[in-house]
Design a protein around this nucleic acid. Sequence first.
RNA 1: GAAAGUAGGCGUAGGCGGUUGCGGACUCCCCAAAAGAGUCUGAGGAAAGUCCGGGCUCCCGAAAGACCGAACUUGCUGGGUAACGCCCAGUGCGGGCGACCGUGAGGAUAGUGCCACAGAAACAUACCGCCGAUGGAGGGAAACAUCACCCCUCACAGGUAAGGGUGCAAAGGUGCGGUAAGAGCGCACCAGCAAUAUCGAGAGGUAUUGGCUCGGUAAACCCCGGUUGGGAGCAAGGUCAAAGGAACCACGGUUGGUCUUUUCCCAGUUCCGCCAUCAAAACGUACCGCUCGAGGCGUCUGGUAACAGGCGUCCCAGAUAGAUAACCGCCCCCCUUUGGCCUCAAAACCAAAGGGGAACAGAACCCGGCUUACUACCGACUUUCUCCC
RNA 2: UGGGGCGUCGCCAAGUGGUAAGGCACCUGGUUUUGGUCCAGGCAUUCAGAGGUUCGAAUCCUUUCGCCCCAG
Length: 135
Amino acid sequence: MLPQENRLKHRRDFDAVYKSGTRRTHGKLSAIALGRDRGSVERKPSSETGFATSPPSAPPTRIGISISQKVSKSAVVRNRIKRQIRAALLELLPRLSDGWDITIVVRPGASQCNYCQFLQKLEQLLASLEVLNGD
RNA sequence: GAAAGUAGGCGUAGGCGGUUGCGGACUCCCCAAAAGAGUCUGAGGAAAGUCCGGGCUCCCGAAAGACCGAACUUGCUGGGUAACGCCCAGUGCGGGCGACCGUGAGGAUAGUGCCACAGAAACAUACCGCCGAUGGAGGGAAACAUCACCCCUCACAGGUAAGGGUGCAAAGGUGCGGUAAGAGCGCACCAGCAAUAUCGAGAGGUAUUGGCUCGGUAAACCCCGGUUGGGAGCAAGGUCAAAGGAACCACGGUUGGUCUUUUCCCAGUUCCGCCAUCAAAACGUACCGCUCGAGGCGUCUGGUAACAGGCGUCCCAGAUAGAUAACCGCCCCCCUUUGGCCUCAAAACCAAAGGGGAACAGAACCCGGCUUACUACCGACUUUCUCCC
RNA sequence: UGGGGCGUCGCCAAGUGGUAAGGCACCUGGUUUUGGUCCAGGCAUUCAGAGGUUCGAAUCCUUUCGCCCCAG
């Protein structure tokens, strides 16, 4: 499971990502990314006590996953895909640069993929969105 | 041995370890919070479908009662339950050789509607038929005439519903008698109805007697009985800087309608009391509701049982873009192949390699049921048939 | 999570107990030199599945499945 600060939660954040993010698609997965450092930074200054010490340019990157009933009618299958994607993202998280809102959209047919395929596709998608700190 | 039937096994299964992670509770640390550390804990029998019944919350001011109305679509009897359309026990009917299973099982004589096609006729008749006793018409007969009786003919009035044919269904069924022909018209048995007696708590069972008899359909409207304030649903509803409370009380305000009683609210009066310096935040699962409950387990008592009661013991998920996991290894189990052992041959056993580890399925306020989905296995009890002793 | 609706031929669909209309599409034949148009004929579904009520069910009752819509 992702830490709380890396989760994308609210509907208005999802809407903002869908409206003006950059979309990339690879196979059965699709990723949309939006930089957070304009406009939304001063909306969210309250809770950070460490906010004074670190410069305001790097809020943590938040990720949300969207999977529709068209992928599978079974809630068990959908939850399993979400867990596997989250596990893969956890592996990639240290290499991500800060300050992004990302939505992963699972498209129909993804119920046949396994963990390694998800990991590869996510890596390629994030690299193509240039949010990976390359090495 | 074969073929079945019933009710079960806290729905019973994978176990251990490693790496990376998540939710909750408690403890430590700390002035406090956050962060951190530690310990414990973290999906199901159906969590599903949302088909019923409740709890809980809000709105229509509230509660109780009487009469009328409406709705529900509940409907054999008795019991259980907070309640139910659920459960248990029984009755009737249907199915099965049987163990057993199914059952939406009030009323068609309260009334209305419908019963296509066919058929004469679908609930009231008469097409083909049968008869023509009675009445009518014509004729005959005894010496003659008339009337009556008698005989013959007609099928005019009329009688009949046995037989034919139609249909899911045609005025109880079969037999004997009876009659002009027939008919419960009479009798016997059967089916059905009613009354009485008796058994039963009751649904009903049994017996006797009686008059002879009435199509089906109410999962058609309806009648009777029963039940019920209506509506919305935890995305209910509430808190989130900012004060109102108590007493008295006019007119008025009610759940489908009317009425009665009690209470509440409301303008107003009196008394007591409070707030407004700035900033931030400000309708979002941020917090409450939210998990101790018609609760689980054990045992005893009552009851045929469903279930109820007593005692002891336990606390057992509370998420909110939604945790309970992702990946890997070993053990164990199952299947396949190969080899070994044994053997006439196989099975079983041992070893190696490969594959698989379940199916249905994810809490979303909580309970009680119903329905549906589904893997491998375990052992009971019962019935019928066959074989052996 | 809650609320509501639908399912009839390949497509659009009518049908509220008594033979499952119609249109498009498709097939065959005719008309035409040929194609189109036009004309005639044909074409089906255990009416989403299962069980029940009824003499008789697409229709009534129970239940399951699938699809769609609405509410933050």
